[in-house]
Design a protein around this nucleic acid. Sequence first.
DNA 1: CGGCACTCTTTCCGGTATGGAAAGCGACGA
DNA 2: TCGTCGCTTTCCATACCGGAAAGAGTGCCG
Lengths: 97, 97
Amino acid sequence: MTALEPRFDAVVHAPPRLQICGLLAAVDTMEFASVRDAVQVSDSVLSKHVKQLEEAGYVQVRKSTIASRQRTSLALTKAGRAAFDAHVAELRRIAGL
Amino acid sequence: MTALEPRFDAVVHAPPRLQICGLLAAVDTMEFASVRDAVQVSDSVLSKHVKQLEEAGYVQVRKSTIASRQRTSLALTKAGRAAFDAHVAELRRIAGL
DNA sequence: CGGCACTCTTTCCGGTATGGAAAGCGACGA
DNA sequence: TCGTCGCTTTCCATACCGGAAAGAGTGCCG
């Protein structure tokens, strides 16, 4: 059992990013396009948010050229999962759950 | 059983306001000063956030002059509780809980 | 009666984040 | 070589945020 310390994380808190993290927390890996559709944002907006998550060290971006098509897959890093979990814990605390 | 529909609410989502709602959700009524101390914000900042919650119809502000001192007590309205609960439900959904 | 204190409110201000639109870019495929 | 696909980056206008300070309403004190 990890002693999960609730900790508010502004990077994770912003609506689009919270959703992105939530999605990634559930699936190990998801493609850029799938996330974009799930979150319902434009390419540019998703790209910008992903960049922020990447710079925070929360998301790993892997680009591969498969079947002659460019594919960008996203995944939470360990730090990303920790930050997300801690943030969710903080939300629970705040919400009094 | 109320069919609580998860619904993201930006007014509730902002950190300071999420905390305010969380506090009020637990106590029926809390005084301005107590909330200010709990949330750790300045008078002006709290006043501004409360105003937003009030304008959204989520918080009721009651001013009374008790013991020759001005007292402002805050309370979640029915709509406020509903919005908070729905938002929390949405957070749960996003967090995959 | 005038001034002061207590409690918020409102205004002013500089800095930051956000999203949409459009231009950019690198890798292919025709 | 040109056009397309899949993101990325830039440009821009808008919204929000918090701190500081001025305001306002209501009693109390001298």
